[in-house]
Design a protein around this nucleic acid. Structure first.
Length: 307
DNA sequence: ATGCGGAACT
DNA sequence: TAGTTCCGCA
């Protein structure tokens, strides 16, 4: 294990470097990291041009329950154990959403920061969009509203676009839990739950579906330690994301939502064997039709809706 | 069953 | 702050 740990750290380090500064879904944030929330174990991570692939292996394989809709408790639990953390390495997650989100890993990054000003156009300011894929150019009206409100930073926060400023923040940011959107992204990258409870219906567009809304809500509740969590409640949180420009609803399709932007190093589990990494940044060539899908899964609907 | 956003609350 | 809980309404 030690070697893998080493590798992990190495990878993490590199990734963090790359992550210097990013902005997330449009809004600003300051965050607090946390080291391991969900920890996945990356048994073999490979550092391939800065990417890693992870293959989780902690969980006992879940039964393919074909019973249809309801997932058994066992499966949920199993999936959940993964979220709860049984792992050792703390890596993956953070790199994905970190930045403003969770830098921590020893104190490498830290900082909070960022703040960004947002302009009508979209994200702006210091934002470095390099690590995020913005899925659409224009923002929904709701977002604009959100913008307005946020124009006033109450505390003038030092802008620190600087990527690698290493501020020693709370080095041990324990107990930080992922934001819901991060959590969903994690699930989307987790083979234990990805196609089963939640899956991409159109990865390029950031569109995903809560195949088993109940299960996902339960997982979320577990993560937040809210036993009574249900889709109704989680859904409210999801709806708040519309205003914040983090999510959009794909109208007409039940349980289908869309991330307005995604980290570029997202690992897309499109299906079966392949975990595919999207590294391509097509600037704005809106027509997305790269032959990405090799999935046998149905990634059928490509709703072009980007509000 | 979902989805929605207001309002109060943590 | 980022949801959580509850609600009336669609």
């Amino acid at each position: 294990m030690s070697f893998s740990v080493f590798l992990s750290n190495l990878v993490t380090f590199c990734v963090l470097k790359m992550w210097a500064y990013t902005d997330c879904p449009a809004v600003t944030v300051e965050e607090v990291p946390h080291p391991h929330l969900l920890s996945y174990r990356d048994d073999h991570q490979q550092l391939l041009k800065g990417q890693h692939t992870h293959t989780c292996s902690i969980l006992p394989s879940l039964e393919p329950c074909e019973s249809g809709e309801e997932e058994t408790m066992e499966t949920l639990v199993a999936a959940d154990s993964l979220l709860t953390m049984d792992c050792v390495d703390t890596l993956s997650l953070e790199q994905h959403y970190s930045q403003a989100f969770l830098p921590s890993l020893g104190d490498v990054i830290a900082t909070p920061v960022a703040q960004v000003t947002v302009s009508a156009e979209g994200v702006v300011g210091a934002v470095d969009q390099s690590q995020w894929h913005s899925l659409h150019k224009e923002r929904p009206a709701a977002q604009l509203q959100a913008k307005k409100r946020s124009k006033k930073p109450r505390h003038q926060r030092a802008e620190s676009p600087t990527p690698d400023i290493k501020v020693k923040k709370n080095k041990y940011n324990k107990g930080h839990t992922l934001y819901l959107w991060q959590f969903l992204m994690e699930l989307l990258q987790d083979r234990q739950v990805c196609p089963r409870y939640i899956k991409w219906t159109d990865p390029q567009a950031g569109i995903f579906k809560l195949v088993n809304s109940k299960a996902v809500a339960r997982l979320w509740g577990k993560h937040k330690n809210k036993p009574d969590m249900n889709y109704e409640t989680m859904g409210r949180a999801l709806r708040y994301y519309y205003q914040r420009g983090i999510l959009n609803k794909v109208e007409g399709q039940r349980l289908v939502y869309q991330f307005t932007s995604l980290p570029k190093d997202m690992i897309y589990i499109t299906d079966g064997d392949g975990v595919k990494e999207e590294e391509d940044d097509d600037q704005d060539n809106s027509g997305n039709e790269d032959g990405v899908s090799d999935d046998s899964d149905m990634v059928s609907d490509h709703s072009p809706s980007l509000k």
